[in-house]
Simulated scan of single mutants.
Amino acid sequence: MEYPKFTQEHKSLMAKYLTKDVFESLKDKQTENGFTILDVVNSGVQNPDSGIGAYAGDKESYTTFGEFFDPIIKEYHGFTKEDTHQTNLNPDDLQAVNPDPDNEFIVSTRIRVGRNLDKFPLGPAISDTQRKEIQTTVTDALNSLNGEFKGQYYSLDDLSDEDRDTLIKDHFLFKEGDRFLETAGLNRNWPKNRGIFHNTDKTFLVWVNEEDQLRIISMQKGGDIKEVFTRLINAIKHLEKTMAFSFSKHLGYITSCPTNLGTAMRASVHIAVPKLAEDMDRFKEITDKYHLQIRGTDGEHSKSTGGVYDISNKRRLGVTEVQCVQDMYDGVVELIKIEKSL
């Protein structure tokens, strides 16, 4: 096993922290799933423009290769190996009256979490047989849901053209992963044993075997953030009755990408702030104050359409789920206040 060749273009946290000494210390180790340090860093080695450049193959990766992962997690999350993650899934603790009851600014609200099943490897190390077993377990749980969660599962293997067109039109259908996920091993056997579930009202959605084994999503038009959060938590509670999710006291919910550790939550709104957007420095000053991220209308690396931006929480590890959503809510209240004043 040879030390990877890095160029001046390699600016990722992986390239920063995979020193020759760290590599020598870890090169002979592997997890019980056979995942090695070269597997962990392959995406970042192949893609010099990566931001992080490292993916875990299983829960064990974070301890077996802790000498490498710990400083990355510390720099990205401000979270040390001595810290303990706290979780709070109680919607009653969220202070969030609808900040836009007349729907003047908030187009839609969407909150999602990533989850992976305990006792299984993560996506980069999983076999197709294991992925099939996960799909069966998850779809059995989803098909047993009733009330507002009752819906239908669509397997990517056998989607009809009509269903595919409908899911694309609703912005539900996830595509094959990009080159970063490809080189992390997450696109293997595409599209086998992957799919999408949504309820009748299209306010509750689950992606199965995308980057994480489950992406659980609550969404709706308008700005009732608390209602969206409450639906998500209720769905998680239902699913936890039949499935155990991978979790550690130190890192919270375990995900393949270290940026999602902790709550694995992204709480976001699409919000129209065309006047404020003319002064991006001020816009960014507000979002930075509330630990928020600005994206274009269609997400990361996209541009805004009609002054509409995707605003979401930046912090995930070392803060609770309620804090993640509260950050987003408080920031949105401030953005609306400033937009009204301009």
Rank of each mutant, 00 (worst) to 15 (best):
Y55G: 13
E162Y: 09
V319L: 08
F69A: 09
W207R: 02
T263I: 06
Q220D: 15
D201P: 00
T259Y: 05
P121S: 01
D288E: 08
L214S: 10
T63E: 15
D49C: 07
T166M: 15
D330T: 05
P4F: 04
D140M: 14
T7C: 06
F204W: 02
T305Q: 14
H238G: 02
V97Y: 09
E148A: 11
A264W: 04
D178E: 06
A235M: 08
F204A: 14
G34C: 07
R266Y: 11
H270K: 04
I73F: 06
V22E: 08
D161E: 11
S25I: 05
K221R: 14
K29D: 02
I311Q: 01
T263R: 05
D298I: 03
P258T: 09
I196A: 13
K119W: 07
E9T: 05
N42K: 12
H171R: 03
Q326T: 13
D165W: 09
N116R: 00
L122V: 03
D21R: 02
P71G: 04
A56I: 02
Q135M: 14
Q135V: 07
L335M: 11
T19P: 00
G185D: 13
G44L: 04
D279L: 13
K337G: 07
D170V: 03
P91G: 04
G318T: 04
R231F: 05
S25H: 09
D281I: 09
A244P: 03
P274I: 08
H270C: 05
N143Y: 08
S341C: 03
A244F: 00
K29R: 01
Q326V: 13
V97T: 14
Q220H: 06
Q293V: 14
D281N: 14
Y253L: 12
D165G: 14
G151P: 01
I196T: 09
A125N: 13
A15M: 01
P91V: 03
D39H: 13
V269F: 01
Y55A: 12
L317K: 11
K59G: 10
I225H: 06
N103W: 11
E300M: 12
F229H: 01
D281L: 13
H291I: 00
G147M: 02
F247K: 15
H238W: 10
R282S: 12
I126F: 12
G44N: 10
D118P: 11
M243V: 07
K249A: 03
S312V: 04
Q323S: 07
S43T: 15
T259K: 08
S160Y: 10
G223V: 02
T242G: 06
N209P: 00
D157K: 04
L276G: 02
T297P: 07
S341W: 08
I311E: 01
D163G: 10
D281A: 14
I106M: 12
E285F: 07
H198Q: 08
L251Q: 05
K303Y: 08
Y76W: 13
H238C: 11
G252R: 10
S43C: 14
D158K: 10
D70L: 03
M280K: 12
D93C: 01
P191L: 06
R131V: 08
H171M: 07
A184Q: 07
I52K: 07
A272K: 15
Q326Y: 13
H291S: 01
Y154N: 06
K119R: 15
T183G: 06
V113P: 15
K27D: 11
K202C: 08
T36S: 04
V206R: 04
E24H: 09
I336K: 00
V333G: 03
P4A: 00
F35Y: 14
H250R: 15
K192T: 01
M328L: 14
E176F: 08
